[in-house]
Amino acid sequence: MAECRSPAAAFADRFDAASKGGALRLAELPFLTQVDIRVDPASPAAKDIGAALGMPLPVAPGTTVISGDVTVAWLGPDEWLVIGPEGYRFDLLRKALGERHGSVVDVSAQRTTLLVAGPRARDLLAHGCALDLHPTVFGLGRCAQTMLARAQVVLLPRQDGLLVLVRSSFAAYLAEWLLDAATEYLAPRL
């Protein structure tokens, strides 16, 4: 992907600088494979797609299933987002669906992935996210589509922070917003 350009590429240096204080780690994780799956969860096709993924499609709202470097996030009662590494073979998912009714769409470039991690990650996001981000409420294994500032996002908790998936056209806005929100966490505390 050397010749590709990711939506938040211009922010790499500022993300790095903001990550030096220890309170936060900000980074774009560019070029992840993202696949939107639509299928009846009760159908054999869903089961076959689960088999191809190596894990079942999660049916509980707001949950994810993670296996290795692939995450499957519930987006709706018949919609999931698969997030895998660059080069992930999503064509195998399409193959697993076959001719049956369903949808496997490459949306890798539709959103980019921002890592917001570090001890103050959840405090940072709470400036613009109305969800309860407390780790006991929104911990590993959860996911949510919601608003962060004025951008729609998918939030995926990670061990020490969260992944924020944002539409590519909103990425620069959200990066600016995150960096601005981080101002207070980057300097010595009051």
Binding site: P61, G62, G76, P77, A130, L131, A144, Q145, T146, M147
Partner: peptide
């Protein structure tokens, strides 16, 4: 009914 309680802005 799917996601639980959310702010009306959503």
């Amino acid at each position: 009914p799917w996601c639980g309680p959310r702010d009306e802005a959503e």
